[in-house]
Amino acid sequence: MDEALRQANRRLTIKLLLMVAAATGFAFALVPFYDLLCKVTGLNGKTGAAVQIAQAAKIDTARWVTVEFTGAVMPGMSWEFRPAQTRMRVHPGETAKTSYLAKNPTNRTMSGQAVPSVSPGWTAEHFNKIECFCFQRQVLQPGEAREMPLVFFVSPELPADVHEITLSYTLFPVSG
């Protein structure tokens, strides 16, 4: 192998090593970069979901919609968590109020986050929460029980086919 070729190979090796180093560095830089990106764009819910304010929606007194409530607790949460009432009948556009009960029977201060889900899924856009405990994490002291209010209305635009909507909250443990 002649000298020129050997030199060229050496230069290439150095360049490649530098590239590896740069790529590794970039990988580490990704986490702060991604955080920044989320902060700027509000991606991934990092800025927190906005609470929709009820417009003076017209109440459709001719229709009834049954709203069912249910709750689930993820494993690892020793909490009790359930809706205060399992179902209520509302008119579309009418503001209604109910609550969920949470109790921390343990000796430790714990926090949880309730994630809502609506079924049928495509009716979610017609289900508006005015006041909801799901936007912040809930901290309960040892033995503390709390009634968590939920104020909502079903949009009058809800397709006439839908008679029943179910709202479910899943309580996830929040660590750290």
Binding site: V31, Y34, N44, G45, M74, Q113, V115, T170, F172, P173, V174
Partner: peptide, 13 residues
């Protein structure tokens, strides 16, 4: 491993 929540229902994923 890096604490994102794309697919994790607990944090809006």
């Amino acid at each position: 491993h890096f604490g994102t929540h794309f697919f994790d229902a607990a944090n809006g994923g």
